[in-house]
Design a protein around this nucleic acid. Structure first.
Lengths: 248, 248
DNA sequence: CGCTGTGAAGTTCTTCACAGCA
DNA sequence: TGCTGTGAAGAACTTCACAGCG
């Protein structure tokens, strides 16, 4: 997250916003390949990925000139180039900490094992859970975190514990050599520089949706002038929000 | 997502980037309140939320002037203001479609029931799953989607089905009146204008982490000049990436 | 001719730095 | 004095529009 003070974007030079979209393009490309499509235009690929075509072309241009003017992109070749850029031509062993409902769901998730990621181990600290089977894995005790990470050269960890345990687990993972963390616990993790954390948070996503839903409801009520606002049940909040005073 | 051509940001005027951070601030505020802290400075709150203080102040300024110069923000009052802005002063019933591992995890997720969101129903189409108990809910058959949504005035739906079923489920939810969707299936959903979709995608997050991890490995190898690269096991990819030719 | 790749313009977001109030 | 609230500068990102290649 810390950016150097130079305008130069490192020697890699791929904007963060582009990196965040490459996986989406990659998935769309796989879908096209599965349908036997060999060539695709920026317009078509953009539609499949849910972005506009100018953005897609600009994004891909950061990887190199892999298209053919007048024709489009070769699907298979582009799959390879995007995969390589994302670092998916190598295998990434991953450890999951927390074997509750979420840990189960993650471990059984099909897209996990495919395309470069492999569950190296699942840990839990509950003696009743340790030793149980999840997919092809036996749940191991959290005491083994350090040895497994060192032994398998794991650099990505997934935290699927309750919020109260997340920071301690994070500290252990980092101490054991993990440098990339995907955090499902609803807490802000603090990590030393050089460690990359991404978070996935159900409740935050719902709150963002609620904001937009509320905004739509307010607009609708304001436009209608009466209370019967279609199918959505947003009466009370809409009324309260409409009464807001605007300072300054 | 479609923006009006005016520079004016509607009469609401809260930037999208700010909306996306408000839930994080809210969580930090709840944590402070739980510790009995009544007043907080922008510096402290920013640290708890993992952002810098200028950004936090700018964000909060979009809601109004709720701080006190020389002092800081009243925690309880700010909780209320942020909650109200996010639309959390009303109750949001939510339906979950898909009662697999992920649906289970979501339904049991504590932060779900708290703070304004309430699971109205969980649906599945598998006859063996329908009728089973998840938390306080009995899994209902997908045929009931329309009647439950209409009956309870639900406007938020969560899709936790396999990718192959997601678009069809989405279409049904939208037809039934849902206008906000949280999608856990790894597909790009297409929806009519006026419907808001957010996606949560494990595999995309992992790929983004892999990109950064790979980049770190390349930098490290380039700096070292030899292959022994600390604890991370990123040897092969680092070598491949270093051999890349840069066109143009 | 059709489509990519890209300068340039436009927009949004972030950060700085400080005026101004409690 | 200490901290908020905010203009202004800067950086990042998006979109436009078209040159130029296949």
């Amino acid at each position: 997250m810390s950016r150097s003070s130079m305008t130069e974007n490192g020697h890699h030079g791929i904007p963060e916003a582009t990196v965040n979209r490459l996986p989406v393009y990659l998935r769309a490309l796989y879908a096209l390949a599965d349908r036997g499509i060999a060539t695709v235009s920026s317009e078509e690929l953009a539609a499949a990925a849910g972005v506009n075509s100018a953005k897609l072309r600009k994004d891909l241009s950061h990887l190199g000139s892999y298209g053919t003017r007048g024709v489009g992109y070769d699907v298979e070749y582009l799959v390879y180039q995007v995969s390589r850029e994302l670092g998916l031509t190598q295998d990434w062993p991953v450890v999951i900490v927390g074997a509750g409902n979420l840990g189960h769901a993650l471990a059984n998730y099909g897209g996990f094992a495919s395309r470069g990621f492999r569950v190296a181990a699942i840990f839990d600290s509950d003696p009743l859970t340790v030793g149980t089977q999840i997919g092809s894995q036996v749940v191991r005790h959290a005491d083994e975190i350090e040895s497994v990470i060192a032994g398998h050269g794991v650099s990505i960890g997934v935290i699927a514990t309750p919020a109260s345990a997340a920071q301690a687990v994070c500290d252990r993972l980092v101490a054991a050599g993990i440098t990339s963390i995907l955090n499902f616990a609803p807490v802000v993790l603090s990590v030393p520089p050089g460690v990359d954390v991404r978070k996935v948070d159900l409740s935050i996503e719902l709150q963002i949706l609620a904001f937009h839903a509320q905004r739509r409801a307010v607009v609708r009520v304001a436009a209608n002038g009466n209370g019967t606002a279609g199918g959505a049940a947003a009466g009370p909040a809409a009324g309260a929000a409409a009464a807001r005073a605007v300072p300054t």
